[in-house]
């Protein structure tokens, strides 16, 4: 029963994505919408991404320094670990989990609200491909802007590690920078961008699917918004695991 339901949702999701990525009625309208969404997702999420990344970098540095205490591992490894933890895992995954909560729930509510107020019906009757007009710009905007947010998060997180470790005397600034420059593998940055692209697609498409299929009233809209976050988070973590298996 559960499997049938899951397959039913998967089928509907794929059909919706199929119509969402069909030829736009008018490119300029979609372009404008992509720019608006990029602004909403990017600028609107900058502060929360900044704060979370700063603390995650700081906590990583302090935790690792605590682990190293009394061992023969050199202190500059703190910079190295902060860098790699941030690039490979924390920046893409934590940023996208947070964005699933902020951006994903917002998209599900926005589209769900439009469904309830008959805005989607109105567009359908005009002849607009609503799946394409409402979903494609959001997904496109997200896959463009979220990798940039993740890159910013990576820089801020490393900065957070520096702020937490250097002024408090856990290691010197020179050692931290030395750690940052040690054993650098550019492929990890590629992996970070692959993850952020996949996560961006998942969190926006799942949230839009939840909003687009809202039936009922405000309770159902709330449920759709919650489902958007919960399912996006689960799928992000599952994709994180699969990408790790495939790319490493």
């Amino acid at each position: 029963m559960v499997i049938t339901k899951l397959l039913d949702h998967l089928g509907k999701y794929l059909i919706l994505m199929g119509s969402a990525f069909s030829k736009p009625e008018k490119t300029s309208m979609y372009y404008r919408e992509v720019i608006r969404q990029m602004h909403d997702i990017g600028v609107g999420s900058l502060i929360i991404v900044f704060i979370i990344s700063l603390f995650i970098g700081a906590v990583t540095a302090i935790q690792f320094a605590y682990q190293l205490d009394g061992t023969l591992v050199p202190d500059y490894y703190i910079g190295y670990v902060v860098r790699d933890m941030t690039i490979i895992e924390l920046a893409p995954t934590i940023t996208c989990l947070v964005l699933a909560g902020k951006v994903g729930s917002n998209m599900a509510s926005e589209i769900g609200g439009m469904r309830q107020k008959e805005h989607i019906d109105a567009m359908e009757i005009m002849g607009v491909n609503t799946a394409a007009y409402l979903i494609m710009p959001k997904v496109l905007a997200a896959v463009i802007i979220i990798p940039i947010l993740v890159a910013i998060a990576a820089f801020v997180s490393i900065g957070g590690g520096y702020i937490a470790a250097v002024p408090t005397g856990l290691l010197s600034g020179q050692e931290f920078v030395m750690g940052l420059r040690s054993f650098f593998i550019p492929y990890n940055v590629f992996m970070m961008f692959v993850k952020s692209l996949v996560f961006a697609f998942l969190l926006t498409s799942i949230s839009c699917y939840q909003g687009y299929n809202v039936k009922g009233g405000s309770i159902e809209l709330g449920k759709a918004s919650t489902n958007a976050v919960v399912i996006s988070d689960i799928m992000i973590l599952l994709a994180d695991y699969l990408i790790a298996v495939v790319l490493i």
Binding site: K117, E118, H119, M126, G127
Partner: peptide
């Protein structure tokens, strides 16, 4: 053809359905 036909259809909704 459906899209062409749709352009010939106008609808007034019960709640007006104006984009807020």
């Amino acid at each position: 053809d459906l899209r062409t036909l749709r352009m010939k259809v106008g609808m007034l909704f019960q709640g007006s359905a104006l984009f807020d």
